[in-house]
């Protein structure tokens, strides 16, 4: 778990991995009312130009939050998370997300870490990049 006393630029946070299956995506579809065919139907995905169904962007955004929360712990404040999707996370692939601290500062009684984030699949393709701001009580 992230310790605000030892945060340093260049530190990497623990990776976060998930499989690309409809078992994962159906659960998110159910809570986010997100049932577009390209997330579960092979024919719809192919019709739209994709080789297979792919994960929902809000789920990938949520995965980044989960990775940050697992690292930072329940008392930290996740202040900002951005994600830019570069390639689809396709059904049948696996995904690993990571992050690296790019800056640390103290502000208003908090230790604030800036991070760069990324997601890659098991073929080596970069699925997304992003940034985050996480504040720890000092």
């Amino acid at each position: 778990m992230g310790d605000p006393r030892t945060l340093a630029v260049g530190d990497e946070i623990p990776a976060f991995s998930r499989e690309g299956t409809v078992h994962h995506w159906n659960r998110f579809a159910a809570v986010n009312y997100e049932f577009a065919g390209h997330h579960w139907d092979d024919d719809v995905a192919r019709h739209e130009g994709f080789p297979a169904p792919f994960a929902m962007a809000p789920l990938l955004h949520a995965y980044l939050h989960a990775m940050l929360r697992q690292w930072a712990g329940p008392s930290a404040r996740i202040a900002a998370v951005g994600i830019r999707l570069r390639s689809p996370f396709l059904k049948g692939c696996s995904m690993t997300a990571g992050g690296r601290i790019t800056a640390v500062r103290t502000k208003a009684g908090e230790t604030v870490a800036e991070l760069e984030l990324w997601m890659d699949d098991d073929t080596g393709a970069r699925l997304s990049t992003g940034t985050a701001t996480v504040a720890f009580p000092s």
Partner: peptide
């Protein structure tokens, strides 16, 4: 969970698919 110009009375483009490509959230 979807956005269309028709909500403002404007004809929605005849696109093949809508994809979310970037999310920037400040909490």
């Amino acid at each position: 969970s979807a956005f269309r110009e028709s909500e403002l009375g404007v004809e929605t483009p005849d696109y093949k698919a809508i994809l979310l490509t970037e999310i920037r959230a400040r909490h």
